[in-house]
Write a protein that binds this DNA or RNA. Structure first.
Length: 713
DNA sequence: GACCTGCTGCGGATTG
């Protein structure tokens, strides 16, 4: 503190010191970026290590964050004679060896590297772990609710077991909504005892603007084709890009474009704008399929003070990778969630200034064939609803229903590898009776063990001990085992011997086709399916590549808030003239369709059902109707049903005659149920349960069925 | 109708 010239500590740093130094309590540190969270955790931890020795393990979701964190902590550690070590896939063997010779100080590590060490060096790691004083989790929100988060919970539990103590857990995050949910995720067995240190004082001010756009359909009311639609998208993209060029040139900004396809589209348009204006290119693309050096180039340009630079990104730049100060944030279209909107806002307005956030939201031009979501101006209204929820401090809670059984398989095999041989009852107690993974009873677990046995992954010795089978050895021995999530195979994009990045294998790429990639235009010279590589060379005209995905899940709270926006007469102050017109159009349609009291928009042969429920319940409704032979299409804010409202009502009443189906029964006829990496090893019973828990909300769907029957029955 | 993340140990060549 002295050497940095600090005269006082921030409030969270003062509040966190006592419970962390005490070394018994779990602590959640919730504060915006740059509020000094890292120091709040590590000043007391390093003080403790300097006095008492030992080891602090800090688990972080990104290699880049570990590198940033390492630079920040190195000096702090040196001044107290506490060594800081980073450990991830890019760290040299020599560094890792040096740590293992004397495993003390602060260790910054990824969950996958920790998993690898447990699998490969079980007995050694047991000794190392015994000396842990604190377990820190950086960017805790990034883990909550995912397979990777389940893996982390299991790793923390295994650390407790190995050390024979309750190792205090310290979680850092800027994006936690409900602290009781976060506490339960951090310490499932004793959430009440978690100390929450929250920075209430440093509330960020935000300058907001929502700009509306209308996509002019060049086809003028004729049947829209794929070509016309993309032409319309190009047209609005050009309009938005020219606005971005005018407002952002000459300063540092972040542009969130939601999809990789749009990142490429906007990066290309903005580069062309620079070239036309005969100024240096200062807009760069950034997404997960781009090669690391291209991404680092964009990050370096953003960070450098020498020239202005703006980066068009997907969620890659949401998290705390240090990119310096940016002037403003642009959000193109509806953000995928309130949580990610909050992360994005947090990237601007450091150093006490206010954050600047500009939405650019396109809507379709209406014609006689337009559907309800377009007429309701749902994109504009959803954006407004999400901003309001963000300002109210709400973020999506994790999906508590997820079973993550793929990760159960991984953790079971990993634990057996770590220990060499494990008693089946002990494995049940560690993974299931502890509450980590939810199975109905021990019989279901026994069936899973038999299935893994039949697949050669496990063998059971005569005295009841589980060991790895031949297939299990092979699986666990390969370095791809340690990650809890899976990644699809992709083609490498190569120019002049240099890898630019990757494209999905499924994409129809042929020799001679033109593609935008890395913000530049290319022609494909050669596609080599053997080596999974395509070779490209620079060219002129091209289209952005298509990636695949299933879309973000909209939470029920967002839909309910949208309904309130329709019912309210107020126009938020941050909405521009065009978006105000669009909001008014949406409200007019809402009123004329009498949606304040109707749930269905009537048509002779079809119905549009507006439930205002979350996507999980809506998807469940579609499956329920589909299994009754009714084609139901989920169109975002509504369900398009292929029968008249009267027929729909009859089917709904019929469904309500019997009890709701069991999740398993509803999932059984569905063909592709493998979501997680190791789902292929589950029993068909568990595969159905796992799929149903992840994808269905049966009580929610039943509530909507009842609402419809009550209103029209 | 979307995005993101991670990984070991070994053998052999090269460099200081």
């Amino acid at each position: 503190m002295w050497s940095r010239g600090w005269t006082s500590l921030h409030p969270i740093q003062e509040q966190a010191a006592a419970p962390i130094l005490e070394g018994q309590r779990d602590v959640i540190l919730a504060a915006p970026t740059a509020a000094g969270k890292t120091e709040a955790a590590f000043l007391p931890i390093v003080s403790h290590l300097a006095r008492a020795g030992g080891l602090c393990v800090c688990v972080s979701p990104l290699k880049a964050l570990i590198n940033d964190q390492f630079r920040r902590l190195e000096g702090l550690g040196e001044s107290a004679d506490v060594r800081v070590t980073r450990w991830h896939g890019d760290v040299s063997r020599a560094n890792k060896k040096r740590f293992l010779e004397s495993p003390v100080g602060v260790l910054l590590i990824t969950p996958e590297s920790l998993e690898a060490q447990l699998v490969r060096r079980g007995p050694v790691v047991a000794g190392v772990v015994a000396g842990i004083s604190h377990l820190v989790v950086d960017e805790f929100h990034a883990f909550i609710g995912s397979d990777r988060g389940k893996q982390l919970q299991s790793l923390m539990h295994r650390v407790d077991l190995l050390s024979g103590r309750r190792v205090p857990r310290i979680a850092l995050s800027a994006t936690l909504g409900d602290m009781s949910i976060a506490a339960r995720y951090l310490r499932p067995t004793d959430a009440e005892s978690v100390v929450v240190v929250q920075d209430e004082s440093a509330r960020q001010t935000i300058q907001l603007m929502l700009r509306g756009y209308v996509i002019k359909d060049p086809n003028n009311g004729l049947k829209p084709t794929h070509h016309n639609k993309s032409e319309a998208a190009d047209r609005v993209a050009r309009e938005i890009a020219s606005r971005l060029f005018r407002t952002m040139r000459g300063s540092d900004n972040l542009i969130f474009a939601n999809s990789r396809e749009n990142v490429e589209r906007y990066a290309d348009l903005l580069r062309l704008s620079c070239e036309e204006a005969r100024v240096p290119v200062e807009f760069f693309p950034h997404h997960g399929s781009l090669a690391k050096d291209l991404r680092q180039h964009a990050e370096a340009e953003l960070k450098s003070d020498a020239r202005p630079a703006s980066v068009v990104a997907t969620s890659t730049l949401e998290m705390g990778i240090d990119v310096g100060t940016v002037e403003s944030i642009a959000q193109i279209g509806v953000p995928p969630s309130v949580a990610s909107l909050r992360q994005r806002v947090g990237r601007s307005g450091r150093k006490g200034g206010s954050a600047v956030l500009r939405f650019h939201v396109p809507e379709a031009e209406l014609d006689s064939g337009s559907r309800a979501p377009d007429r309701l101006r749902a994109q504009t209204v959803q954006s407004i609803a999400m901003v309001q929820l963000m300002l109210a401090g709400w973020v999506e809670p994790p999906d508590g229903e997820s079973l993550n059984l793929s990760t159960l398989v991984q953790q079971l095999l990993s634990h057996v590898a770590q220990r060499g041989a494990v008693n089946a009852g002990e494995a049940w107690r560690l993974l299931c009776a502890s509450g980590l993974f939810i199975l109905q009873d021990q019989k279901v677990f026994a069936r899973l063990l038999r299935r893994l046995g039949a697949l050669g992954l496990l063998t059971q010795t005569s005295d009841g001990l589980l060991t790895l089978g031949e297939a299990g050895e092979r699986l666990v021995d390969h370095y791809t085992f340690y990650a809890a999530f899976s990644t699809p195979r992709e083609l490498q994009v190569i120019h002049a011997g240099k890898v630019l990045g990757t494209l999905p294998v499924r994409q129809a790429i042929v020799e001679g086709s033109a593609v935008i990639f890395g913000g530049r235009r290319w022609v494909v010279l050669k596609v080599d399916r053997e080596t999974h590589a395509i070779t490209v060379s620079p060219s002129k005209g091209a289209r952005p590549p298509t990636f695949f995905g299933s879309g973000p899940m909209v939470h029920e709270v967002v839909r309910r808030r949208m309904r309130e926006v329709y019912l309210s007469p107020d126009v938020p102050r941050f909405v521009d003239a065009r978006a105000t017109e669009l909001l008014t159009e949406g409200r007019t349609f809402f009123r004329e369709a009498q949606l304040s009291r109707e749930l269905v928009i009537r048509d002779d042969s079809s119905s549009t059902w507006l439930t205002w429920a979350g996507d999980k319940a809506v998807n469940t409704l579609c499956v329920l109707l589909g299994q009754r032979g009714i084609e139901a299409f989920h169109g975002g804010v509504c369900i398009d049903v292929d029968v008249s409202p009267d027929q729909l009502l009859r089917v709904v009443q019929d469904l309500l005659m019997s009890a709701p189906p069991s999740p398993v029964a509803l999932a059984r006829p569905i063909r592709f149920k493998e979501i997680g990496k190791y789902d292929r090893f589950l029993t068909s019973e568990l595969l159905c349960e796992n799929f149903a828990a992840a994808r269905f909300d049966i009580p929610g769907a039943w509530r909507e069925l009842r609402a419809l029957a009550t209103m029209y029955g």
